[in-house]
Simulated assay, not measured.
Amino acid sequence: MPKDWLEWHDLYNTEPKLQQRLQIVREYISHSLDASPPGIIRVVSVCAGDGRDLLGTLASHPRAKDVHARLVEINPQLVERGRASIESLGLAQQIEFINGDATISSNYVGAVPADIVIVCGIFGNLADEAELNRLLGNLSFLSKQGAFVIWTRGHSNGIPYSETVRRFLRESGFEEVNFKLTATGDMGVGLHRYRGENLPTPKEQQLFVFSGVANKAR
């Protein structure tokens, strides 16, 4: 089992469910870019890891030059990887990688409200449903009206946790655009659209509490 998040991200090289999840996430990012109106597309990625979902999509997407993004990740080694990818893509003038706490709202000021919000690998690392509801409530600060929100949620012990997420999203002003399970059947990936109003200030400074650890991540 991975002892830290750097090792966890290396599992993308060997774990089918993570590879399948990444493929679907990239598909949803590509769809969101295609569906965005002409002009700048603002993207934020929460707990971004090394940014391989967004950056891997932009490597071949025709609208890459329209994207202005902020990725927030607390692990400095993952941020270093991500920044190297941004440089290699020639997108350093429009994509910034913040080495900071993704739970703190001030790390998004100036980059939100966004057209696309990526919250992958987070919902399974929240303590309970109350914390999930708290994060979903604060997405109205990150998202403009009509924003695409891309998320993931793993299943375990036969419990389809993604169904709870889908229900909470419906109750929080999000319209489902697409949802898929990985071929392994234990990882859900959703694409929703925010239909509520953007909040110009967050409901609270800390948007959520990330309580997961790498060797138990779902």
Rank of each mutant, 00 (worst) to 15 (best):
K3Y: 05
D4A: 00
W5E: 11
Y12S: 01
T14S: 08
E15F: 00
Q20I: 03
V25A: 11
Y28G: 09
I29C: 02
S36P: 08
P37G: 14
P38N: 08
V44R: 03
S60C: 11
A64F: 08
A69N: 10
A69K: 10
V72Y: 02
P76F: 04
R81C: 09
G82Y: 01
G90W: 00
G90A: 05
Q93C: 06
I98V: 15
I98D: 10
N99C: 15
I104M: 15
G110S: 04
A111K: 00
A114P: 12
V119S: 07
C120E: 05
N133L: 13
L135E: 09
G137I: 01
L139N: 02
F141Q: 09
G146R: 06
W151S: 14
N157C: 07
P160S: 00
Y161N: 15
T164H: 09
F168K: 10
E171K: 12
G173P: 03
E176K: 08
N178V: 05
F179H: 12
K180D: 11
K180L: 13
T182A: 02
G188M: 02
H192Y: 09
E197A: 11
L199Q: 13
T201H: 10
P202K: 10
F210S: 10
A214Y: 05
N215S: 15
K216C: 11
K216P: 04
R218K: 14
